[in-house]
Every structure is written in structure tokens, then in C-alpha cells.
Design a protein around this nucleic acid. Structure first.
Lengths: 242, 242
DNA sequence: AAGTGGTCTAGACCACCCG
DNA sequence: GGGTGGTCTAGACCACTTT
């Protein structure tokens, strides 16, 4: 790896090049969730850099929740179903416990993307998108009424799947090798519509939190647009600011 | 610094000891916001460790937003009024711009802490707390109706101050040397009460986001309990999940 | 015992900022 | 030119896990 800087200008630091190189192994599917990756020494040999440089790259990827390091065992690719990962993007929890919700898909269609949808996904007007409507429940009670959009071209075969699991991101990872690395959320308060009331078993006009999310993959490309409407009577949206 | 492990057991890594040592300089007020701190070499000499170990400690503190490093210049203590810091704990923004709100204090009293208040603050029932009610505005329009509690013993002289600035955390830093390092927030949807309606110039029953925050200092001790009720008609609560 | 990541050190060179 | 942080290397030892 240590040859001349690729462009003469820009020239990222070596450890950043190593990080990007290794991230590419994740994107390409060469490294899959749960897998033990080569040791620092081995990677240093492969890439012809020092162990310290590999370490710095691996540490950065560990901080991004892409890898998990275990002293004495080795470095592993993070798994979406790992409890540490599971609630990275699901922020609703009750006082007592952290529980991942069950989902019931109501509709799944392939549609032509409208401007509202296409823009945050970085697509062009009219590009095909997959639209999914679902209700999510915790402890048997419905709490989220949501619709989400995915670029259809990236997820061939999704429309028409008989069973959509509760954790969509795990599905995207296992079936298309797409890892969600980051999500931007914007919240505001709103009132339950007639549809909300029906699906969430609450009165029309009941206060809800509306969440708009855009989720990004490892390369920073938008992967999903999601609009959720959440009953927060028995549950809180929790975040830690640092 | 590198003598025997302090307790024979536990024995934190050296860089963590250095980090804690340097953090103590912040807590004690030896280092104040904006100040240039000694160079890595100098700190390494002072603490009798290698420069690499100091660097690791400084990097960790930089990641925690306690320090700011500038190549060629040196390492500085972070300032609460720095734009990078300002919006760390203020998550409401409009589409166009990030703007820090103006505040108008309505009431400030010293009271005996009730159980609800005392528990999150780690105090005992009846301990004295400072209770502040205020309304915060963006672009001239009121958007937040909030009440906050601080342990009275830590902030002697606060009650009775004629002017409370918009940024309370900056005040805590400059006057009492207390740095807010982390805040946990829990959100839910609610409806505007008669008081909310009055203070926020909105109809009673209007949807609001209610936020409960507990803020912690550098040593992880709770410093503030805050309950905000926010009009989100023209503004969004924004977070990035990683 | 062997292999892994975690810590610590020492030294080199680079990029940046300032007087 | 001298000082600072940023990068990169090489080697040592420790702590942990598995064989």
C-alpha cells in the first residue's frame, strides 16, 4: 500500500487509506458479519504498513461500530443483531426495559419516486423506489405507524418477498450486503390522524412524535427514507448528547 | 506519575490515569476555557511518561469535546461559546439555520427538592435546589417553555443574580468552573396546557414535544434536571445516530 | 505454549503556524 | 527557524484466550 500518494494532492494519511481499504472489504462482502478478520500482524503484512497503522485504522472502524475487538481472540465484523448494534437506530424504550418491536407489513409496492422521496435518497425524479407501510408493536401494543422508502435498484427481489423480518437493516445486510452506518433523524410533535388512530388504537387527535429519518450506508450514500408516527404514552425517545 | 499501580488492583492504563489527571486540572480551574495548555512534550516531562501516552490522553479528551487541538499552534481548552460546542446540547433547528435562542427568566427560587427532582440529581429528599422557569425564543417567537433545577449547594450566589444569560452552561462554567460533559434526554409528545398556550402563544391542546434532560459534569455527577415543552411547528429536534 | 489485541516507549519525519 | 501537533514506524512487554 505505501506507494506514492494516489493523486499527489489530497493524499490521505496512510491509516485513513487502510481504513477505506478495509471498509471496502466489508462493502464488497469479502468480510461478512460475525466473521473473524485477519490479525493486525497479518493485515500489516498484506498491506505493507506497520502494525501501528493497521491498529489505528481498526480502532477507527471499531469506534464506528463496524468491528468488534476482543483481546486474546481477534477482531470480528460487527453483527446487526448484536444487542450493542440493535438499539443504535431504535431509540424508543420504556422505563423498564429495552425491547425490539415486532413489525407487521401492511403494504409493499414498487412505485415511481416523487420529489419529496427522491431528493433525500439522492435519486432522480421518477426513479423506482420500494414503499413499505408497516405498524410496529411493543409488548403486543401498536406504537409506531410508519412508511419507508428504499431505492428499488439497490434491492432487487425485495418487493415480493413473502416475509419481511422485524429488523429491516439486518435484512439489507444479510441479503444485499448493505450496512447502515448512520442515520439523521428530525422530530416534531403532531396529532394522530384518522389512519394513525386506527392503526395505533388511539383517539384521533392524540399527540404523537413524528420522526423523519434518512439512513446512510458505509460509503455515506442514502439508503432509506422513513417517516414514523409514534405513540409515546408508555415509551420515550431516548438519546445521549455528548 | 508512573509509580506502582495505585491500588494494586484495578490499575487503570497509564493514559487513562493521565487523562484523569489532566481532567482534574479542568475541574480545579487550573485550566480555563480558551486557555493554551502545555505542549505534549512538556506534559510528558511533567508527568514522567512518554509523549505517545500524553497524546493518547489528549486525543481522548479532544474526542470528549474538552480540548481543541490545532496543528502548529497547540492544544486549547474548549469554550462553551464555541459554535462547535454551542449546539452540542441544543438540538432544535429550523430548515435554514442553526440559531441559539434568547431566554427570558420568569421565576428563580430556592426551594426544597421534592422526590421527583432530587432523585435524578442524586440528592436527598429536602435538599435545597434552585428552580428556574423560563421561556426561550427563536427569531422573536417563543418556542420553549421550560423549568430547570440545579443543586443549590453547588451554585451559591446564583439565586439573586440580576441577569441570567441565554446560555446557562456557559455561566456554570465561567462562574463555578462546572463543565457539562453529557446530557441524557427523553422525549415524548404531549398537548399544550393553558400555561404553555399563554407562554408559547399557541392554542391550548396544540401538540408539543416534552423533553426531560439530566445533564452531567466532567466527573459524571448530575448537575441539572430540565423539563422543556417545545413548539415544533417551525423547528425540528435533530440528532444523528451512529 | 502460542497467538491475539492492549499498552507503552522512543525516535523519525511531515504539515502547519508564528515571529 | 523553531515550536507545535499529526503521522508512521519498530520493538517491547502485558493481559487474555485457546490449544
Amino acid at each position: 500500500m505505501p506507494d506514492e500518494p494516489a493523486t499527489l494532492v489530497a493524499a490521505k494519511p496512510l491509516y485513513a487509506q487502510v481504513r477505506d481499504q478495509l471498509t471496502r472489504r466489508l462493502v464488497s462482502g469479502e468480510w461478512t458479519p460475525g466473521m473473524l478478520i485477519p490479525s493486525e500482524q497479518e493485515l500489516a503484512r498484506q498491506l505493507n504498513v506497520s502494525q501501528g497503522t493497521v491498529r489505528k485504522a481498526l480502532d477507527a472502524m471499531t469506534m464506528d461500530n463496524l468491528l468488534v475487538r476482543r483481546q486474546g481472540r481477534g477482531t470480528f465484523v460487527a453483527q446487526p443483531e448484536d444487542p450493542r448494534q440493535l438499539f443504535q437506530f431504535f431509540r424508543l424504550s420504556s422505563e423498564k426495559q429495552q425491547e425490539f418491536p415486532e413489525s407487521q407489513v401492511l403494504k409493499m409496492t414498487r412505485v415511481s419516486g416523487t420529489k419529496d422521496v427522491v431528493k433525500p435518497l439522492g435519486l432522480s425524479a421518477g426513479d423506482p423506489v420500494i414503499r413499505i407501510e408497516r405498524v410496529r408493536s411493543m409488548g403486543g401494543a401498536p406504537i409506531i405507524n410508519e412508511v419507508l422508502w428504499l431505492p428499488a435498484d439497490r434491492f432487487a427481489g425485495l418487493v415480493g418477498m413473502e416475509h419481511i423480518p422485524n429488523n429491516i437493516y439486518k435484512l439489507l445486510s444479510s441479503k444485499w450486503g448493505v450496512t447502515i452506518a448512520r442515520a439523521d433523524e428530525q422530530l416534531h410533535a403532531t396529532l394522530a390522524s384518522a389512519q394513525d388512530a386506527l392503526r395505533l388504537s388511539c383517539p384521533q387527535g392524540h399527540p404523537l412524535i413524528a420522526i423523519q429519518r434518512v439512513a446512510y450506508d458505509l460509503e455515506g450514500r442514502p439508503v432509506e427514507l422513513r417517516q414514523s408516527r409514534c405513540l409515546t404514552d408508555n415509551v420515550r425517545y431516548s438519546v445521549t448528547l455528548r
